[in-house]
């Protein structure tokens, strides 16, 4: 029988299931991003402290997060740590923890970069104008640090959203998993099902990430022109 492959998406509640699966990933990403922003800013400020011990610890953490693949972290936490410590953590909770650890480290480095890249003489000229330290932060440091940090932070957020698809491998039923289930059911009837399902998932990710990166480019341009 002649069947348009794309119908797979709209059969039954398939699209709704995909969207629910997507929501699971987004939920993990949103919670992790929120945690990363708050604690990442704190971590970034801590990294600017001139204390050798603090700097070494911060550096080790950052490098560990960067060198070891996220997938390994997920396995380590889900299959390793929970068993060793005899605690039970759901796959979604583990995902949030691992993505937050990653986000805090990267966000911290972005914040540190934004603060330390401001030339020291700007602080001096603010003081020479009779501004208090608080006023210098409020009118000089923070506005410029935020301008420098937003594009990189948004970029990090989109990377986190994309990478959350890895959580399927520790058993979270998210959009990819749902996609696979749909494919399994429909592959006999619709041989091209896997193409359409993955194309749909591609489109969903694109719809979420593209506007975000557009927005970040727009901000960057706007601030460059000042």
């Amino acid at each position: 029988m002649q069947d348009l492959g794309i119908n797979v998406i709209f059969e039954g509640s398939n699209l709704l299931r995909l969207l629910i699966g997507l929501w699971v990933t987004m939920r993990i990403a949103i919670v992790a991003i929120a945690i990363s922003v708050v604690f990442g800013i704190a971590f970034g400020i801590v990294m600017t402290v001139k204390n050798t011990f603090v700097q070494i610890v911060a550096r080790l953490y950052l490098e560990a997060v960067r060198i070891i693949p996220i997938l390994v972290w997920l396995f380590l936490f889900y299959f390793g740590l929970t068993k060793v410590l005899h605690i039970h953590l759901g796959a979604e909770v583990v995902s949030v923890i691992v993505f937050s650890l990653w986000g805090i480290a990267e966000m911290g480095d972005i914040v540190r970069g934004a603060i330390t890249s401001l030339p020291a003489h700007q602080r001096a000229s603010g003081r020479a104008l009779g501004l208090t330290d608080l006023q210098i932060y409020r009118y000089i440091i923070i506005p410029q640090a935020v301008r420098r940090l937003i594009p990189a932070a948004i970029n990090l957020a989109t990377r986190m959203i994309k990478t959350t698809s890895l959580v399927v491998l520790i058993g979270v039923v998210e959009v990819l998993k749902v996609g696979q289930q749909i494919i399994e059911v429909s592959i006999l009837k619709t041989p091209s099902a896997s193409f359409w399902v993955y194309a749909c998932i591609f489109a969903l990710y694109f719809i979420i990430c593209y506007p975000i990166s557009l927005w970040s480019k727009k901000l960057e341009l706007k601030w460059q022109n000042q």
Binding site: S125, A128, I140, R147
Partner: peptide, 15 residues
């Protein structure tokens, strides 16, 4: 506030 100072580096706030 009573002592003005101008530096060698251009120190206008760029933003």
């Amino acid at each position: 506030q009573k002592i003005g100072m101008v530096f060698q580096s251009y120190d206008l706030f760029p933003h």
